[in-house]
């Protein structure tokens, strides 16, 4: 297990370095950094001097090393557009995105898994067919359309929920949370549902397929033949055996919820990282784009690590390798 984690850590470092390289190449190849920083009336000499001073004439590897070393402590320089350290910008925006992603993920799991189990057990029931149909709509409608429809219904026509922003937030240290105020919570509802809908239907369909597979397994039949009550057969024996693939997909999806909240954040003007990134693209704000890229890669790597470790917790068959290696 220890060697396994060590191996995974090494792989993660390679992934992070590769992403860092791509992010770094943005600086060099998307526009000229000096041009982006200075005004039009700066003379050529001044530009050359600035170039020398910033180390832009140094060899490629030295520059990359400097970038990677700074990035590893979260230092991505100044935003061209906001004239503030990128670190500060991210720290400001991160809580909003993370809170939104967390709520969406919990929603997707808490509704998706029970719906998946239900549709697997009552395969031909009316409610199951309804769920399946709705899930098809959920998968096929684009996120922005769902967001706009929700805004139209609950924000414009019924006027129950705010249509944009985070509402009132409370600062706890550097973290700003919307969980503690009524308007903050209200603002969360529509964006999180919009973001969760696709993941929810995906998880539901996955759980359903896995559940149908496991229910055919011999050990489920044997559990029934021992007279175990239906509930125990379904939930203690069958459901737990569907978890490994569900964990895999959920992990990947959580990563993409964080990474691709961009559309939802734009629709609801949610002050998160996605919105920051979209604006950065519009303004060719390369430090912000690079930081976003590296940060998202970091999230994916961490989530995948956690997923791999969860496998060991869920499935005892993976744990045995260690015992075998010890000569048992």
């Amino acid at each position: 297990m220890f060697t396994f984690i060590l191996k995974r850590l090494l792989q993660s470092v390679v992934v992070m370095l590769t992403v860092a390289l791509i992010a770094f190449s943005l600086f060099r190849y998307v526009g000229d950094p000096i041009n982006n920083m200075v005004g039009q009336d700066t003379s050529l000499e001044e530009r050359a001097e600035l170039r020398e001073r910033l180390g832009l004439n140094d060899p490629f590897f030295l520059q990359f090393y400097r970038f990677a070393a700074d990035a590893s402590v979260g230092e991505f320089g100044f935003s061209y557009q906001h004239r503030r350290p990128v670190k500060e910008l991210i720290a400001e925006r991160l809580p909003a995105t993370l809170e939104l992603a967390l709520v969406s993920a919990i929603l997707a799991l808490a509704i998706g898994i029970p719906m998946g189990v239900y549709t697997a057990l009552r395969r031909n029931g009316f409610l199951s067919r309804t769920f399946m149909t709705i899930s098809l709509i959920g998968v096929s409608l684009p996120t922005f359309l769902i967001g706009i429809l929700l805004i139209l219904l609950f924000g414009v026509i019924l006027r129950w929920l705010p249509t944009f922003g985070r509402g009132d937030i409370i600062e706890i240290g550097w973290w700003s949370t919307g969980f503690l105020t009524a308007s903050g919570l209200k603002s969360l509802i529509m964006p999180s549902i919009t973001l969760a809908l696709f993941q929810m239907t995906l998880i539901m369909r996955l759980v359903r397929a896995e559940m149908l597979e496991v229910l055919r397994a011999d050990f489920v039949k044997f559990a029934r033949a021992r007279g175990l009550p239906t509930r125990s057969v379904h939930f203690r024996h069958a459901l737990k055996n569907t978890l490994v693939p569900v964990i895999t997909i959920t992990g990947l999806q959580l990563g993409s919820i964080i990474a691709f909240a961009i559309i939802t954040e734009s629709v609801f003007q949610w002050p998160g990282m996605g919105l920051l990134f979209i604006q950065a693209i519009g303004e060719v704000d390369i430090p912000v784009m690079a930081a976003y890229l590296v940060l998202i890669a970091f999230f994916f790597v961490v989530i995948n690590m956690v997923v791999d470790i969860l496998y060991f917790v869920v499935d005892p068959r993976l744990r045995i390798d260690k015992a075998l290696a010890n000569g048992q």
Partner: peptide
């Protein structure tokens, strides 16, 4: 009591 054919799949792999 019932005994099935394949002992490799008759037991829940995730429980002791």
């Amino acid at each position: 009591g019932m005994i099935f054919q394949d002992p490799l799949t008759s037991l829940n792999p995730l429980q002791t």
